[in-house]
């Protein structure tokens, strides 16, 4: 059985030059669970001294759109992990209820709301980029996005930033 201790010991034996240097996250959707997964991992990377890029595309753009980022939802339909029948999840008000309960639980664990969390990542040196194609598609302008946006990139620009040893790309 793999215990936490065994994993930690294994981590310790990893050679220094095999350390992760940079992680590039692509967030393609803005359900709360997806956005938080990306934010916790990006912030966690910075806390470990690892460079972090976040690239927001398609509906992921909501998480850095000023008007939408404070109101991300947790969808209750199409998630087999929810402890109630799918039809109940589709009832009016269900999504709002689950979202507000989730927010309460997160606050209890000192997890910041989306706008504060994104700003924290930016302040910690994480880079925030929007996808040019998705911006054009949704007719979004730079002014619609968070003020600390580091740029609007094409996918080519994104790959150029992901070049080099010790860089990993994570798609969410």
């Amino acid at each position: 059985m793999t215990t936490l201790e065994a994993v930690q010991n294994e981590v310790k034996t990893v050679k220094k030059d095999e350390k992760i240097k940079k992680i590039c996250f692509i967030l393609s959707k803005s359900s709360m669970d997806s956005a938080y997964a990306a934010m916790v991992m990006a912030n966690g990377a910075r806390m470990e001294g690892i460079e972090a890029d976040m690239f927001f595309t398609f509906f992921g753009l909501d998480a850095i759109t000023k008007k939408k980022m404070t109101d991300l939802h947790q969808p209750t339909v199409g998630n087999p992990s929810f402890p109630f029948p799918a039809m109940i999840g589709g009832l009016p008000g269900m999504e709002a209820l689950v979202t507000s309960q989730m927010k309460k639980e997160m606050e209890r664990l000192d997890m910041p709301p989306v706008d504060e969390f994104m700003e924290m990542i930016s302040m910690s040196g994480g880079k925030i980029y929007a996808c040019k194609l998705a911006m054009d598609m949704f007719k979004l302008k730079k002014e619609d996005m968070v003020d600390y946006l580091d740029g609007v990139l094409t996918i080519g620009d994104f790959y150029a930033r992901a070049a080099g040893d010790g860089t990993h790309i994570i798609f969410i």
Partner: peptide
């Protein structure tokens, strides 16, 4: 009191940007 980056940032003692600049490469650690 458990320490988090968020709490340090809100402490009034320093902010997140400065904390990272003071202790580069994993400030809290």
């Amino acid at each position: 009191i458990p320490l988090t980056i968020r709490k340090v940032g809100k402490s009034g003692v320093t902010d997140i940007k400065e904390f990272y600049a003071l202790f580069p490469g994993g400030p809290l650690k």
